[in-house]
């Protein structure tokens, strides 16, 4: 009987080996292991054996059964793998065809640069404040130590609504508004839209953006002004950028300064961008004038501070190499897509 069992096993294993798909394998399984399968039949025939031989023969049958079963499983896996490989091959696509892009829009370059500047100042502990664009003469001029009849008030520079109301010519009015609302320590920047009655050309726009800065506390020095702005420039234009402070004049700061950064395009050697000076004018700054502190109800004997103001348009143009301010307000979609 053992021989027959052997024969069944060989036969089964051989046909499993030759099977091509899972259907054939299932037939083989039924033929040998099914209810009427050969091995089942064989097992039934075991009743005729003497009881002493039955356990041995039983073991043999089970061994054969396991052997066939595992051969079936192996073959099944092999077939499945093969058909998967075939399917994957069939499913091959040309991955170099263009992707289906969801359309991504874009922020205006002024916004992108403003966000960067804002982040730099947040990092240094400055909050962001805002002020109205249509402003009182008092905040725009008078409280900033620009009295009536001061040349800076000439109508050629300022858009007026009426005698007392105008379009702010700078973001500096926010200095007074913040001082009125808040006691020192004050540490803010104020970005915003400002207006000057300049005719439009490559470097002038009647509307542009400024970012004002104001720090007021006890013992604020001009060294602090330099330190803060130097860090700003390094974060903005790279750690190797150097700054230079020159004396200047603003009615609302004293001492006043203009800050240049060394030209990053030519690294200070002189080029077209910096008109061969090696330096690019970035912003105006200074120690808050005591009269301005008084207008803001802050005692200049107890507190000092510094203020600065920079043109966002100018910095944006420097960052992106834009050579005409008009592009910023024309909103040509081909321009906007570049950022």
């Amino acid at each position: 009987m053992g021989d027959r069992l052997n024969l069944i096993q060989q036969e089964a294993l051989a046909s499993i080996e030759q099977a091509k798909d899972s259907n054939v394998l299932e037939e083989i399984r039924i033929k040998y292991l099914g209810k009427k399968g050969e091995l089942t039949q064989f097992l039934r025939g075991m009743g005729k054996l003497p009881p002493s031989e039955r356990p041995i023969m039983g073991q043999l049958v089970n061994k054969t059964r396991r052997s066939i079963e595992s051969a079936l499983t192996r073959k099944n896996e092999a077939i499945e793998r093969e058909s998967l490989i075939k399917r994957l091959k069939d499913e091959t696509i040309d991955v170099t065809l263009p992707g289906e892009k969801p359309q991504l829009g874009g922020l205006h370059p002024l916004t992108k640069v403003l966000n960067k500047i804002t982040d730099i100042f947040f990092g240094m502990g400055f909050n962001v404040a805002e002020g109205p664009e249509v402003e009182l003469d008092y905040y725009n001029f008078e409280a900033l130590n620009i009295p009536k009849n001061h040349p800076a008030r000439d109508t050629q520079d300022t858009f007026y609504i009426n005698e007392n109301v105008l379009l702010r010519t700078h973001t500096s009015p926010a200095q007074i508004r913040v001082m009125e609302q808040q006691q020192p320590p004050i540490k803010i920047i104020v970005p915003g839209r400002v207006y000057r009655s300049d005719a439009v050309d490559a470097t002038h726009s009647p509307i542009f953006y400024q970012i004002e800065g104001l720090v007021i506390d006890k013992n604020i020095t001009m060294g602090d002004l330099k330190g803060v702005l130097d860090i700003f420039i390094k974060r903005m234009f790279g750690e190797r950028t150097r700054t230079r402070f020159r004396p200047h004049h603003f009615p609302f700061t004293e001492p006043s300064a203009e800050m240049d950064a060394n030209c990053t395009a030519c690294e200070g050697r002189g080029c077209r961008i910096c008109s061969n000076t090696g330096w690019i004018e970035i912003l105006g700054a200074g120690m808050v004038h005591p009269k301005v502190l008084e207008y803001g109800n802050i005692d200049p004997n107890d507190y000092t501070g510094f203020a600065f103001g920079m043109g966002l348009d100018r910095i944006t143009n420097l960052v992106y190499g834009i050579d005409d301010i008009r592009l910023l307000y024309e909103n040509d979609i081909r321009f906007l897509r570049q950022f």
Binding site: D217, G223, F245, P255
Partner: peptide, 27 residues
């Protein structure tokens, strides 16, 4: 002070960062 600073040299004023309480800045 401005007269003194401009002749002494703005560039010779050492850069410092003001002391102060921890930053309270947030959007």
């Amino acid at each position: 002070a401005e007269e003194v600073a401009r002749i002494y040299g703005y560039d010779k004023i050492p850069m410092t960062l003001m002391e102060g309480s921890a930053s309270k800045a947030m959007r």
